[in-house]
Design a protein around this nucleic acid. Structure first.
Length: 266
DNA sequence: ATGCCTCAGCTCCTGAGA
């Protein structure tokens, strides 16, 4: 059983690739999508239903938009929450649901554009609100995973040119301190439980042949709670879809779980 | 240097992404 996250940079464009990928990975029970860039009334619910998946959506026009896709033969999503309760936000960035005993929080973190900008200040406020809310979520749901496009590199191993990009967006001390704030809640970077090498990325710039030259960043993450960590079997970045025609600039990140997980799977 | 790609939209240019 697996839980995955993928920033697909427009579901309108990438729907066939998402369905293909799910078809190739039937062990994936929950897929969190970011940057669907579509309103809920236009979400292709039927296409996913035909393929055997439920959807919980939280979209908006043009920008952002998140969704949780889940297999109909898995526990159904319940207690769905959209965005961060108590944090006023016009953007659709977070969707959470409980699948049996496992809480999945799918998030599209703000980009931040540039340190010192208004968008960077918003990113900092958003990160603070996320942490404050997650503290309670973790107390309520011991088996929790926070997945998505964090728009933060954790350390220099996640950056193709750490010297040139030092202090730039996704690589600032402030952003990394906020990431550490999430870790301090009792979450762990699942990818780093299994891989310690540098130059393993989840995003590559469309420009300058970023993917072919492996000029990328690791900014898509899976964090697992202490309770869920003991069930983590592996975590990988699937680069295959980045080789598609008209790919997303992000690759899926996949958390493998081993059972039994009481209330979730055998 | 502030583009190089890609996507959406009041679409033949602009804003945003990362």
């Amino acid at each position: 059983m697996k839980i995955a996250t993928w920033n697909i940079n427009s579901l309108n464009v990438r729907l066939p690739q998402v369905l293909d990928w799910l078809g190739q990975h039937p062990e994936v029970g929950v897929l969190a999508l970011q940057e669907t860039k579509t309103t809920d009334d236009k979400f292709p619910v039927q296409a996913f239903a035909d393929a055997g998946y439920r959807v919980e959506v939280f979209g908006q026009k043009t920008y952002n938009g998140v969704a949780l896709i889940s297999r109909t033969d898995w526990p159904a999503p319940s207690a769905v929450v959209r965005n961060i309760p108590g944090f006023e936000d016009e953007m659709a960035r977070v969707i959470s649901a409980k699948f049996g005993s496992v809480r999945v929080v799918g998030a599209y973190f703000p980009n931040g554009q540039e340190p010192g900008s208004d968008k960077f200040a918003y990113k900092m406020r958003w990160l603070e609100a996320l942490r404050d809310w997650l503290r309670g979520e973790l107390a309520q749901h011991p088996l929790l995973t926070l997945v998505g496009d964090y728009n933060i590199t954790v350390d220099d191993r996640d950056v193709y040119d750490p010297i040139a990009l030092a202090g730039t967006i996704h690589c600032t001390d402030e952003e990394r301190a906020h990431f550490q704030g999430l870790i301090d809640l009792g979450l762990q970077d699942a990818f780093r439980l299994f891989h310690d090498q540098a130059k393993l990325y989840s995003w590559w710039d469309y420009r300058e042949m970023g993917f072919r030259r492996n000029r990328g960043l690791r900014i898509d993450h899976v964090l697992v709670s202490t309770g869920l960590r003991v069930h983590a079997a592996d975590c990988l970045i699937d680069k295959a879809p980045r080789k598609n025609e008209r790919p997303s600039d992000h690759a899926p990140v996949v958390l493998g779980l081993k059972g039994p997980i009481p209330g979730f799977c055998a």
